[in-house]
Amino acid sequence: MNRVLVIAEHVDGIVNLSTHKSVACALQVPDAQVDVAVLSANGKAAEHAAKLAGIQRVILVRRDEFAEPVAATLAPAIVELAANYSHVFAPSTTFGKDVLPRVAALLDVGQLSDIMAVNGAHSFVRPIYAGNALVHITTNASQKVLATVRVASFQPVAETGNAPIEPVTINVTLPTHTRFAGRSSDSTGRPDLQSAARVVSGGRALGSADNFKLIYQLADQLGAAVGASRAAVDAGYAANDLQVGQTGKIIAPDLYIAVGISGAIQHLTGIKDARTIVAINKDPEAPIFEVADVGLVGDLFTVLPEMQKQLG
């Protein structure tokens, strides 16, 4: 029997959808019993986590130090929990990417990043070179498997469960050398980029933050989240947390509309799992058309207003 521990990502008592997807991945491990660990100061997220379908139980570790997800503070506690498990998974979000390698090193085991398929308890597939190649990796059976889960590759589990919450006391001394000092976000009130069914993304071609409003308008009309290329973020047209791609967010919406984005490999990595990709670009040779399901060659400054009119 395999025992998989999924480290929950949560904020304000709500478990992030990346956790639901990591659980879905964990449930694909053959003959697995899956637990979810909630490390938290107030313990609130445990109740939400208990609803995740298919899990055995929620392991709740409450410490005041866990008011914010600081990797260096969380890692020693996760190391303690890991003793009872054959596998420890975390979502491949900035949260999981930060903390899991630290846990792995403390356990003196290697880690797999961004697993996208489970072929066996010790057999996984992950992308390299911005997704231009896939490696099939096996680990030896005696080795604990630590892995981050490429969330775009898995469908979230439902919230139909009712798992018991088991409080666990961990007494290890936690380091105080790393302290949380604040968080800021520009993009509130709109659908979340990582879980939205539709995304409208803008690139350098928008030309200014003001013009970028065209992207927001179309997104609002479609109930879509807004994304951006690196060039658009670097130029200050869009907030950094909207970047899609190898070094931004990897997303899998049903509909992705790329406007004035050339389609560099680093951008395409982020949208490979989108069900339908629409490209609007004035250059018929733009690489984005190679991956687009539907392409329209045209000037975005005439195409977008026309779309808004026809959809409105």
């Binding site: 099939h136 990796i137 991956v291 392409g295």
Partner: peptide
Amino acid sequence: FNVSKVTPPPVKQKGVMVKDV
């Protein structure tokens, strides 16, 4: 970790080009 093989990503079906909005 042992790499058993490296494979190319699945190829996407070719999309369609449309002429207008």
